[in-house]
């Protein structure tokens, strides 16, 4: 087989024509409705918790905790991956997706022990989210401290 750069490029084109693309319209519709539903549910929780005498910050946190808990339970029962298959980004982008990405490696790697398995691998997927989130917040902080106020 000729593996020159030129034939590699030709082959790449051939692969592109043969391989089907993801059904992007269908996927987007599913992501819209599922992600929207999760957010609307969150809003519903927000309105419900607001009827009690909580401060606004407490209500926001309660909403997050409720969604995280629901997601962890659905992950534990193996339901979340089934939703994720159909909903795509609709179940990845909301905070439930974040919780799923923490709970699923925790469950999967508990077989390698509670410390080096579950403990060490819990943030296998979500770790970079925290890392880059923290870094961006420091960046925002520096800019705000020197320029923003």
């Amino acid at each position: 087989m000729d593996t020159s750069q030129e034939s590699k490029k030709q082959y790449e084109k051939m692969v592109e024509t043969v391989s089907p693309n993801s059904p992007i319209l269908k996927n987007c519709l599913r992501a819209f409705f599922s992600g929207g539903a999760i957010c609307a549910f969150g809003e519903g929780l927000y309105l419900y918790y607001s009827t009690f005498s909580f401060a606004e910050k407490e209500v926001s946190l309660l909403v997050s905790i409720t969604l995280i808990a629901i997601s962890a339970v659905l992950t534990a029962f193996g339901i979340y991956p089934k939703l994720g298959k159909h909903c795509g980004a609709g179940t990845i982008v909301p905070i439930t997706g974040f919780a799923n990405s923490v709970a699923s490696p925790a469950i999967e790697f508990k077989k390698e022990g509670m410390i080096l398995g579950m403990g060490a691998k819990m943030f296998l997927v979500a770790g970079p989210v925290i890392v880059y989130g923290t870094l961006s917040s420091v960046l925002v902080g520096i800019v705000y401290y020197f320029l923003g106020r």
């Binding site: 193996g78 799923n100 490696p105 469950i107 999967e108 790697f109």
Partner: peptide, 17 residues
């Protein structure tokens, strides 16, 4: 899946290929 891709409980979508 566990070794090469992602934990089985992670909600991901598989592309057609």
């Amino acid at each position: 899946e566990k070794q090469f891709r992602a934990p089985l409980g992670l909600g991901t979508q598989r592309p057609p290929t």
